[in-house]
């Protein structure tokens, strides 16, 4: 039987996407995680604690940009309703 603690926020898994050198450092373009992180900064701390690849990818947060559900957010952006979170360096289009 499946029980859920009443204080556990009900949320589905989050799809993470990585681009450019962040993708290269982590070694995969995407993955799906279960997390209780409430904002982007908490998610980054969680990921950076996993192993050296993630720690290196997130070692300079001034060089990291984040989009939640395809919209740019600040590092303190909320993960409420987040289905897809993307991490990438400053964009160089044009």
């Amino acid at each position: 039987m499946l029980t859920v603690a009443p204080d556990t926020p009900a949320r589905g898994p989050i799809r993470l996407l990585y681009f450019a050198w962040i993708r290269e450092r982590i070694g995969v373009p995407s993955e799906t995680v279960e997390t209780r992180a409430r904002d982007v900064a908490a998610l980054i701390r969680e990921l950076a604690g996993r192993d050296d690849r993630y720690a290196l990818a997130f070692s300079d947060l001034a060089a990291v940009r984040v989009a939640v559900n395809q919209r740019l957010v600040e590092l303190d952006g909320s993960l409420e309703d987040a289905e897809e979170v993307a991490f990438f360096p400053p964009m160089t289009g044009g």
């Binding site: 681009f19 993307a86 990438f88 964009m91 160089t92 289009g93 044009g94």
Partner: peptide
């Protein structure tokens, strides 16, 4: 449009 494409459109050049 050009100014915004440079730094607000999700492209990365290698």
């Amino acid at each position: 449009l050009m100014d915004y494409l440079k730094s607000r459109a999700p492209f990365w050049k290698k």
